[in-house]
């Protein structure tokens, strides 16, 4: 797996709270057996109802750094949500806060998710709206976001940061390494032996 240290790209401003995963990818698009093709349906219903939705705006079509509000990705555990954002072209998300399952899913896909203050996210969104071509850099080493002459500190979960920086965000390989320890834990649990 590749090490993910910095992600650079233009921004997409979406400063709303409590954006749930049903909105990111409506359930009818979960009728599939692969994640292929989910990208084009990201925020489909929101886009339909709001012509001004940032995902409709030609200015942001090449944006890859999403800036969001509080509790982003709440609700359903569907990995289809980060998959659809990733396939749309989003490579990093800066939000005021994240829902936990969504956060973990993003890390497992190699999409850095960092939190910044309300002030910083508001400022970033204003800057993106003023200049959609502005390059934004999410730096996981420095734990900082930079855009033009603006920069602000960001936070994330230490284990997620370590995993991305060291290229170990594909947890499956890590988990597979500890077979004997897994067996030992299994043997110590009374229910594994049917309480015999």
């Amino acid at each position: 797996m590749n090490e993910i240290k910095q992600v650079k790209g233009t921004g997409v401003p979406l400063l709303l709270d409590d954006i749930d995963t049903d909105r990111i990818i409506p359930a009818r698009f979960l009728r599939c057996v692969t994640f292929d093709g989910l990208g084009e349906h990201a925020f489909e219903d929101d886009r339909e109802q709001d012509p001004k939705h940032p995902f409709n705006n030609p200015k942001y079509q090449s944006g890859s750094v999403l800036v969001a509000g509080r509790n982003f990705g709440c609700g359903s555990s569907r990995e289809h949500a980060p998959q659809s954002l990733m396939r749309w072209g989003i490579n990093a998300i800066i939000a005021q806060s994240f829902a936990e399952i969504f956060f973990g899913n993003c890390t497992a896909l190699g999409v850095p998710t960092v939190t910044a203050s309300a002030e910083a996210t508001e400022k970033l969104c204003k800057m993106i709206e003023a200049d959609p071509q502005l390059e934004i850099e999410v730096d996981l080493e420095k734990m900082q976001v930079t855009a033009g002459d603006f920069s602000c500190p960001v936070e994330t979960v230490a284990s997620s940061r370590d995993a991305l920086l060291s290229g170990q965000w594909d947890f499956l390989s890590l988990l597979l390494e500890n077979k004997p320890a897994i067996q030992k834990t299994a043997d110590s649990l009374p229910y594994m032996k049917q309480f015999a």
């Binding site: 994640f35 990995e79 230490a158 060291s166 890590l174 988990l175 500890n178 834990t185 299994a186 649990l189």
Partner: peptide, 26 residues
């Protein structure tokens, strides 16, 4: 608790895994 992973997370043993048709094919 199986042990601590290099990322600092716990490797947690799972006693029961339930699956359904939507989130399992991939």
């Amino acid at each position: 608790n199986v042990g601590t992973l290099p990322t600092g997370q716990t490797q947690l043993f799972i006693g029961l895994h339930l699956i359904h048709e939507v989130t399992s094919p991939q």
